[in-house]
Design a protein around this nucleic acid. Structure first.
Length: 582
RNA sequence: UACCCCGUGGUGUAAUUGGUAGCACAGCAGAUUCUGGUUCUGCUAGUUCUGGUUCGAGUCCAGGCGGGGUAACCA
């Protein structure tokens, strides 16, 4: 997948043709004009404070994708400047998930903490230049002094303390001689700036917490603003791509680099983060869903985390394709989840092995089939891929069919089984319904039919047309399984709309959850070949959807399958119309 | 309310930089089909508004309207 360009050193060629999004246009123009020596070097900088989700997938595709397309490189950098929330588990998971998505950083795995020493030296440099100072006020005071978006802030009494004093106090901060919150290092910029981030932002704060990588060597840690741009500079990043909310940080990003002076100057470019209907892509909200038990964990198949989607049966290609379809812009957009589902079906359609599985079984007895006789029929594994070959499927006198494929009183357009009607059993025989039985409540318990002995394989001997084909599973050979049907996490299209109104009710968005996002079906009847299903093997249960063996809960003697996505169902639309008009 | 960013069919995203508004998804209609799947064909539908510059404006200018972001020692 790598399109690296080692022979060309640091010269790169823009990709040919095709309209480019605004970021790629900038990158291409920079290459053409020779900026950054024609080099492209990006980075993906996640904080190791949670698992990667669909929103990250977009950023990964942008960061790694652009580097790849232009023959450049992309670093993986763990932005570990907030010890306490960071965990090694996340560091490992992030790497695993990026690899799974299909990207790689070679030997360029970095941590912001790799630069703590350099950052400290630069901090002293800024103090010496009179561009930073140690402030010993408490948080609340500083907050009050910052002013508001409407009013200018006021200067800290420490703002103009002597350079030597700040230098000495910073050293004391580093040695742990202050309590947490006792002092911070601040950039000296402009307390009246209309941009709040320029009102003497904090560069270092004290946290007496051991760091995942640096242990207890430090008790002062750089803030995002002080760490990020400098890390980019150190790594020789050319284009530092991030989301829109950092737009207002850009003046600060540039200011720090300007102050340091003679170092590499990356360019920050912001683009819109990914929003998808019927789900959320914010770490905070996903965490709440897990902690409040609305889902079974970060890898619940309903979660838009990469791990959840993987378990659900999403493929790396489908996610990557979705991300390129979604595009890159500065407009805050909300993408239909249908596009994600389309991307999944598109990929699965060509790779999934077809199998037959009856999810809501009802017995069908073929009255003229000899008792005890078993036939073995040939079934195609994948009509989209001849090389997938075929398999054998056993057939007998009693089979299971889908409850919804039989109707006592069927409308004309219902091309399935009903008294007196003929239907094809996929890859098997043509059968005609001769009757049915019900229980006391009127529920159908059994369907009776006769088969046409000359229709083996499913072809009518006289060429008569049989419009309907239904799937089935031999009762004698059926394998039992639990099947989990997943639907959208949220019933509402845009969960973010729920939280806006009432500030008191910060968790209002949870009320938009889809109560039926998980439906567990037990006693499903599968064809024998499904007993051999492997984790992450793409499967299509014919006429029902794409499924995958659950990688966590399935056992050989208690199979569990997850529905990745349903098939498009034009009959459902038709049926809805019929229902609506009658 | 201040500052910054952004407004193109239902959704999202293009338009050779001032010259025929294209593509994908969704929707609708039809064809094909041993999956009501797939595939194929056709259709519906759009430049936020008002002025200005120009032979010509989605594109440039001014103003309005609308949406988003920003007042953590999170990133």
């Amino acid at each position: 997948m790598s399109t690296g360009n080692p022979t060309n050193g640091n010269t790169t060629e823009p990709p040919p043709g095709e309209p480019l999004d605004f970021v790629r246009t900038i990158v291409r123009d920079d290459i053409r004009s020779g900026k950054q020596g024609g080099r492209v070097h990006t980075r993906f900088p996640p904080a190791p404070t949670g698992f990667l989700h669909l929103g990250h997938a977009k950023a990964i595709c942008v960061d790694f994708g652009i580097a790849e397309e232009f023959g450049g490189k992309c670093n993986l950098r763990l932005d570990d400047t907030d010890p306490g929330n960071e965990k090694q588990e996340y560091v490992d998971a992030i790497q695993e998930d990026i690899h799974w998505l299909g990207y790689d950083w070679d030997d360029r795995l970095f941590y912001a903490s790799d630069y703590f020493d350099q950052l400290y030296e630069w901090a002293k440099l800024l103090i010496q230049k009179g561009a930073a100072y140690v402030d010993e006020q408490d948080v609340a005071t500083m907050r009050a002094q910052r002013g508001t978006v409407l009013e200018a802030g006021t200067a800290s009494p420490f703002r103009d303390r002597p350079v030597e004093e700040s230098l000495a106090q910073l050293e004391r901060m580093k040695r742990g001689e202050f309590e947490e919150g006792g002092a911070v290092l601040r950039a000296k910029i402009d307390m009246a700036s209309p941009n709040m981030h320029m009102r003497d932002p904090v560069m270092y704060r004290i946290k007496k917490i051991a760091h995942n990588r640096t242990g207890d060597r430090w008790c002062i840690y750089p803030t995002y603003d002080w760490a990020h741009g400098q890390s980019d500079a150190i790594e020789g990043i050319t284009h530092s791509l991030c989301s829109l909310e950092f737009e207002i940080h850009r003046p600060l990003y540039d200011w720090f680099l300007e102050q340091i002076g003679d170092i590499h100057r990356p360019r920050q470019i912001e683009f819109a983060r990914l929003n998808v209907t019927h789900t959320v892509t914010q770490k905070r909200k996903l965490r709440a869903l897990v902690e409040r038990g609305h889902v079974d964990g970060w890898d619940d198949p309903r979660m838009p985390t990469l791990r959840g989607m993987r378990r659900r049966g999403y493929t790396p290609a489908s996610i990557r394709n979705f991300c390129t379809r979604v595009g890159l812009a500065k407009f805050n957009s909300l993408h239909e989840i249908g596009l994600l589902e389309f991307s999944l079906r598109e990929d699965l359609n060509v790779v999934a092995q077809r199998r037959m599985a009856v999810l809501d079984p009802i017995r069908l007895v073929i009255e003229n089939w000899p008792d005890g006789k078993t036939d073995t029929l040939d079934a195609i594994n994948n009509p989209e891929d001849a090389s997938a070959g075929s398999r054998e499927v056993p057939f007998g006198r009693e089979i299971y069919i889908e409850r919804e494929d039989f109707l006592v009183d069927a409308p004309k357009k219902f091309f399935r089984l009903a008294p007196g009607r003929e239907v094809r059993l996929r890859y098997a025989y043509l059968v005609t319904c001769t009757g049915y039985e019900t229980d006391d409540d009127g529920n159908v318990t059994l369907v009776r039919a006769t088969y046409d002995p000359d229709s083996r394989g499913g072809n009518a001997p006289d060429g008569r047309k049989v419009k309907g084909t239904i799937h089935w599973v031999s009762a004698e050979h059926a394998v039992d399984a639990t099947v989990r049907l997943y639907d959208h996490l949220y019933a509402v299209e845009d969960p973010s709309e729920l939280e806006s109104d009432d500030a008191q009710d910060g968790d209002a968005w949870e009320r938009g959850l889809n109560k039926d996002s998980l439906q567990v079906l037990t006693g499903c009847k599968l064809e024998p070949a499904l007993a051999l299903a492997q984790a992450e093997e793409a499967l299509q249960f014919e006429r029902k959807g794409y499924f995958v063996l659950d990688s966590k809960d399935s056992r050989p003697d208690a199979l569990v399958f997850n529905r990745s996505v349903a098939l498009r169902d034009s009959w459902a639309k038709e049926a809805a119309k019929l229902g609506a008009t009658s």
